[in-house]
Write a protein that binds this DNA or RNA. Structure first.
Lengths: 112, 112
DNA sequence: ACATCCTATCGTAGAACAACGATGACGCAG
DNA sequence: CTGCGTCATCGTTGTTCTACGATAGGATGT
């Protein structure tokens, strides 16, 4: 328990997703998620956000052997893919996982 | 039942995979699989191979709106990633899913 | 041996990616 | 208002991806 600085990450929000896990649309969806996760740095970022439950952008940069601008780009890729969310919290930005997207991804992979 | 031309795809082979689903190595592994699946055409190919259980390379080309050489490249990407296998069957090539890789992928995604 | 079919590979051109440093935008403390 | 810390964006460079046509390789059938 590392004092999880809650402050942005959303409520559980368990809304069942009834969309199909196969078909052309699902293919694009799965490919989109996979493309976003198709880089070790981004997988690591996702894991970091899951572990720490919440966010802290600057801390992510400290954990990665990459320049701040590069990390910021990876974060953008993940955000555009819908896998994470970023909320402005004063001078810094709080990133967190989008749980629905993660569930959806698991469903899509499970549907293979 | 489309007369699944069995001829290459391996036996079930259910060997439990005990490797960890987290850590730097797992990150690379997951990123590798995801990168391979990070294109709609390749997702579709994987699905085709699963549906038809087996293979038939030329038939894949017919199902895709892409040139033969392009499909062949996508197949190579999937094969290099370890997601599929190709066996020479007379004049043609028989592709099929690598079930262990698929299970491993599900485990890795589930481990997120 | 030869022609034929199926697939892989080569070569190429344009788009997208990955990484960085530099710069800009924004909120906050003084 | 000014300066500072935090993060995003810009501009650049080198690499990789995606797609195609053309060509080569290998097996089959005649």
């Amino acid at each position: 328990m590392t004092q999880t600085k809650t402050g942005c990450c959303p409520p559980p929000q368990v809304g069942l997703d009834l969309r199909p896990v196969a078909g052309a649309e699902a293919d694009d969806e799965l490919a989109g998620y996979c493309k976003a996760l198709g880089h070790p740095a981004r997988v690591k970022i996702v894991r970091l956000l899951i572990e720490k439950n919440a966010c802290v952008c600057g801390d992510i940069v400290d954990e990665m052997p990459l320049a701040q601008s590069t990390v910021s780009q990876h974060l953008k890729v993940l955000k555009d893919a819908g896998l994470i969310r970023g909320e402005i919290d004063g001078p810094r930005v709080c990133y967190c996982i989008e749980p629905q997207a993660l569930r959806r991804l698991r469903a899509l992979v499970g549907g293979l």
